[in-house]
Design a protein around this nucleic acid. Structure first.
Lengths: 349, 349
DNA sequence: ATGAAAGCGCTAACAA
DNA sequence: TTGTTAGCGCTTTCAT
């Protein structure tokens, strides 16, 4: 239909005004009479104007700085998976004029999070990606961001605050429900074991709580008589882990189904492998390298994973679109799909 | 480090030349003396020049036309899934100055493919996405594209020609192997049924052949004694389908495991639902709407899927990057991951 | 072989 | 309230 792109000039001519005025109404920064406003709007409608982003960006020299606030890879292997996503996002948005700066914190250290949050605020970014670990402090941060009109995006999980631009993460309750189905393979199970880590018991916020809930609900509905045992292991003490599992299975040798709701199923892999010979079904979460290795060897049967790298990438993209092109994300809450990994499809993940 | 972006002007000054010359060496289009060439290269290295894509694109007015050659949604529901991907890709690349034109063909009609291929060539695109159905004709097309130096990307499957820019698709053999594991759930199975469609038998090229091979190999390794039956149904004749299945299950009431290797598992869903009451395990491929509905109702247990929309989107992106930014794709062969869908995770797919 | 200069479409500062 | 104009960094044509 339209052969040549219509420009500001075309609109100005048709409206009988200058491009200055046209620009003013396009960015509605006032100083325009009601009448001119109308005329311009009409012309725009008539000609089907589409702004040229290259001209706009070149002229304005707009730049954006996006801060990514996530736990450091050192404080747990899960977050190292996001590194790649940050890299990809950086590459994709850099030519547009977007700089990405990662600020990480020790996910077990509240003070360190405070420091990181302050650092983020100090750099006055045009957008922030947050992976919340500490509920209260995160709330404080995002309220401040809201006050400063800096848009922010949650990944992985979110806190109770509605001013976020978008959220990308796994639906936790549902992932637990799915996990129930995969662990039992749809059959009734008499007795199963949930392995948890010690800090869960020490009152720290437990991000997997609603996942566990989904799991229990699945059991209640599909395997009502099932007995559920729990043991607590210390992630920093392999000997304790071994002992706890030894004790449990001496008492309950009939248990064949084992599950963990955090990303650390690899912690029990040494025990499983030195006590092989029993047919077991083991399900865990997240594609950490150690988990994937256990999956490949057949020690773990299924991993339920998401793409942490995709999450950051999408989050950054959303902020970049907002900052550079004034585009709002299509959806606020983006539940990423849950991927089921077995030894046979993990290779291409 | 670098505070202000360095521009052509900076380079020109440092090299003691004009920006005209600098531009000439940047795009190595000759007409530059050896000596100037060196000086410019040196200056570029010294200053760490990064071209400004906005200025470049604005000035050159570069446009790209990308043709997407895929089977029409009408000739089978699978391809309607890609529509959305085309839409997304269009939206993402349009602001860059990229136009996407879909050219579809009846996947059962060789002449129609020929027509479509000619149409694509006639529009002299800057890049082509091809989903090959007819091996020989596709080869002809891509050889011509190669001759005309038009880059092309394969999706879904590829033909024997090495000049493609990239490929995005599912690893077929592996998907069959995975399917074996999911159907048997790791247990030995005595007798199972493969449902195929009639045209498979009529010598048409069968894109699922290597998937079937992967499946059979899984069985050979993990369930060696298993008896495998096949029936052939006519996709256009529900009565025939019903009859064939009735006959088979009258003869073999003990069969509990059913699989189809193409995307049409929905064809046998009516029969399954009117013959419910038996505990069965049913596995199929691809997230067609009808398949997903059957999955949700529990008639089908598992679907192995890919994201056809993602495939086109990535393919278009690769061509757009190439045409507009002279960027080569990171990898030539991109095997997409195989997604395992159950009723519990399909909702977020 | 090299330089000069006119845009590309838009933004923003300044004049009127 | 409106119009004019000088760039933004690069491409491309035309002189030299």
């Amino acid at each position: 239909m339209k052969t040549e792109k219509t420009t500001l000039m075309d609109i100005a001519r048709r409206a009988g005004l200058s491009i200055g005025t046209v620009d003013r109404v396009l960015h509605n920064r006032g100083e325009v009479s009601r009448k001119s406003q109308e005329k311009v709007m009409q012309a725009i409608r008539d000609l089907g104007y589409e702004p040229n982003m290259h001209a706009s960006l070149l002229s304005s020299g707009r730049q954006a700085l996006i801060a990514v606030l996530i736990p450091s890879p050192a404080s747990g292997p899960f977050w190292s998976l996001s590194e790649e996503g940050i890299g990809r996002a950086a590459q994709a948005t850099a030519p547009l004029g977007v700089t990405i700066r990662k600020v990480d914190y020790d996910q077990t250290d509240l003070d360190d999070f405070r420091r990181a949050a302050r650092q983020v605020l100090d750099m006055a970014p045009s957008g922030v990606v947050v992976a919340p670990m500490f509920r209260h402090e995160t709330l404080g941060l995002v309220e401040e961001l809201h006050r400063r009109e800096i848009p922010f995006v949650f990944i992985d999980s979110k806190v109770e605050n509605d001013s976020y631009l978008a959220y990308f993460g796994m639906p936790m309750y549902e992932s637990g429900y799915l996990c129930g189905d995969l662990l039992t393979a749809g059959h009734a199970v008499g007795h199963l074991l949930i392995v948890r880590i010690l800090s869960d018991r020490h009152g720290q916020s437990d991000p997997t709580a609603s996942r566990r809930e989904g799991f229990m609900d699945y059991l209640a509905e599909h395997s009502p008589g099932c007995r559920v045992s729990q043991v607590f292991i210390d992630p920093d003490d392999p000997a304790q882990t071994r002992q706890v599992l030894d004790d449990f299975f001496k008492e309950n040798p009939e248990v064949r189904h084992i599950v963990m709701f955090n990303s650390r199923i690899y912690l029990i892999v040494p025990w499983l492998e030195s006590n092989a010979g029993t047919e077991r079904r083991v399900v865990g979460f997240d594609n950490l390298e150690a988990n994937v290795e256990a999956l490949t060897r057949g020690t773990v049967d299924i991993l339920i994973a998401q793409h942490p790298d995709e999450q950051v990438a999408l989050a950054v993209q959303a902020l970049s679109d907002r900052a550079m092109l004034d585009r709002e994300p299509a959806r606020k809450d983006n539940f990423m799909h849950m991927d089921i990994l077995t030894r046979y499809n993990v290779k291409y993940y």
